[in-house]
Design a protein around this nucleic acid. Structure first.
Length: 495
RNA sequence: GGUCGCGUGGCCGAGUGGCUAGGCAGAGGUCUGCAAAACCUCUUACGGUGGUUCGAAUCCACUCGCGACCUCCA
């Protein structure tokens, strides 16, 4: 618990001690979704990664402001597609207005995030609600001579910027390489240089999402909304900014450039990027059309999935991998996650039911105590080591073995001290429920009813009415409840 | 083509110079009316070749394979 938190910083490419700029306050910004489609596994991974961050920093008693935006301004399908933005395209397909599309998918995203038991962000700003802030930032960049206006559009002058700052410091590239890497298929837009990017785009007559600006009617470029909104709510320089790996370039690179050009800061001290989810070894991507939406996963309606998997199973599945590793999603992996999740949760129930009285008056030789303290400490060192949730889970399973041991009598209560027992209880609950954010998937309102069924079962058992108890067991099995006859009592569990 | 990353047991996945996580699946055992769960035991891996070292999955070189970014994406 006492060792310091280390975070891998994409900007410096190394693990660094976490030092907030203005303790006890911590500011976090996560690039949220562009809402023109349903939330998918990739959104979940980024959000879960940052949820752990948010939860743990709060656990460390920081006062955290967590901002996660909604990008509801369409932006362009491609740089060269004049007048077609992603949301407008989708609106056309669905025959509704663009704002309806944005609202629909915003609702869907929020619903999915809630299902995943993510803590809601402190502020969830929409890009469309912050057009003035974006315009102000663009004006500042123009004043500083790092942007130019052509025919109602504004572009960031990357080459000029690069004379003073390193454009590419986040993604580790040089401007020359970037330029040469730009394929010649990029049709000449009115940009002076292919590496330049749009801060503001003039709207064609067809373009629906449009706003008035000093340069005429148009809409903001893709990168400016995050710079503007993060600076507005977290200050010109704040602690943590992140998102998926794929945002590192160009999105976050551009954000840094915009911030330097207008605010004279790198925007954030720590840049955090979670790795991507792959399916059959290939990353999921919008353009590849191979992504699995969260609704599809939760209902089992995707062809790559054999059955529904609950939000908590997905959460477990994702936390079993380190956030900076690619994560390959497979049916076997999800099934393994399902089993593991159930075991950990059942352990948590047991913990609340174990006979604490027995622990009260005991003396021990300390050996088991030591093992428990070691596992508890290991949970903290794992999460402090760049949020190694996989290792945290491994340690929770070690603790689980002890819990199960007492439960079925292979471990004696006499072997543990009360202090160690309390440490185990506290650590297990804190990590499983508070920090990793697991909860019971099922509706707990049936629990009292189950207790009644259990009493009937127990009666039948005492009377050795095996037909009767087999009937109860198979019937409950059908609704996903298993009855287990333990040596010291009968319990039910979700299966 | 440029830049970067990865290859761990049947599967998933930590680790990153010696003490060789964890989960799932499989086998055997204990328990049980039968089960299930749980517990115990077992299967002992690091793409290939060479090198550094007392010692390498971990460092270096080469090599093979895979992937990401450079274009919308979490």
């Amino acid at each position: 618990m006492q060792q310091p938190l280390c975070i891998y910083n994409s900007l410096t490419r190394q693990k660094e001690l976490f030092k907030p700029l203005r303790p006890p306050f911590v500011g976090i910004y996560l690039c949220g979704p562009t809402v023109y489609g349903k939330a998918h596994l990739g959104h979940a991974r980024a959000a879960i990664t940052f949820d752990i961050l948010f939860r743990y920093l709060q656990h460390l008693d920081y006062k955290v402001r967590y901002v996660r935006n909604i990008t509801d301004v369409g932006h362009l399908e491609r740089d060269l597609d004049e007048g077609k933005d992603k949301i407008a395209q989708q609106a056309k397909l669905e025959e509704v207005s663009p704002m309806e599309v944005a609202q629909r998918y915003t609702n869907n995203y929020r619903k999915n995030m809630e299902q995943l038991n993510l803590l809601p962000p402190s502020i969830e700003p929409c890009a469309s609600g912050h057009i003035p802030e974006q315009i102000t930032m663009i004006e500042k960049i123009i004043q500083n001579g790092l942007a130019y206006i052509i025919d109602g559009s504004v572009y960031f002058d990357v080459a000029k910027y690069n004379q003073m700052h390193h454009y590419g410091k986040l993604s580790g590239r040089m401007i020359e390489a970037t330029r040469s890497g730009m394929r010649s298929l990029v049709k000449q837009t009115d940009k002076r240089d292919p590496v330049d990017f749009a801060l503001w785009k003039k709207a064609t007559p067809m373009h629906i999402m449009r706003w008035a600006s000093p340069w005429g009617e148009g809409f903001p470029g893709w990168h400016i909304e995050c710079s503007a909104m993060s600076a507005k709510y977290l200050g010109n320089q704040f602690d943590i900014h992140g998102g998926g790996m794929d945002l590192r370039f160009p999105h976050h690179e551009c954000e840094i450039a915009q911030a330097q050009a207008s605010l004279n800061t790198d925007l954030a001290t720590y840049w955090i990027h979670n790795n991507l989810v792959t399916i059959n070894g290939v990353k999921m991507g919008k353009s590849l059309g191979n992504f699995i939406t969260l609704d599809e996963l939760f209902t089992g309606s995707h062809s790559a999935i054999d059955q529904p998997y609950s939000p908590m199973v997905l959460r477990f599945f994702m936390l079993q991998a380190h956030y900076r590793s690619t994560l390959s999603i497979t049916v076997e992996g999800l099934q393994a996650a399902y089993q593991g999740y159930r075991r950990l949760m059942n352990g948590w129930y047991l913990l609340t039911q174990l006979d604490q009285e027995a622990v009260e008056n005991t003396h021990t030789n300390g050996r088991l105590d030591e093992a428990i303290y070691a596992d508890c400490a290991a949970c903290y060192s794992a999460i402090n080591d760049d949020f190694n949730t996989a290792k945290v889970l491994a340690n929770l399973f070690n603790l689980l073995k002890k819990i199960n041991g007492w439960h079925n009598g292979t471990l004696s209560y006499a072997a543990i001290s009360k202090a160690a027992w309390n440490a185990l209880r506290k650590t297990y609950t804190t990590f499983l429920i508070d920090l990793l954010g697991f909860k019971e998937d099922h509706n707990s309102s049936i629990h009292p009813m189950l207790e009644i069924v259990l009493m009937t079962y127990q009666k039948a058992k005492s009377a050795k009415q095996y037909n009767q108890i087999d009937f109860i067991r198979t019937t409950l099995h059908k609704i996903g409840i298993a009855i287990k006859d333990h040596p010291n009592g009968i319990r039910w569990e979700y299966q």
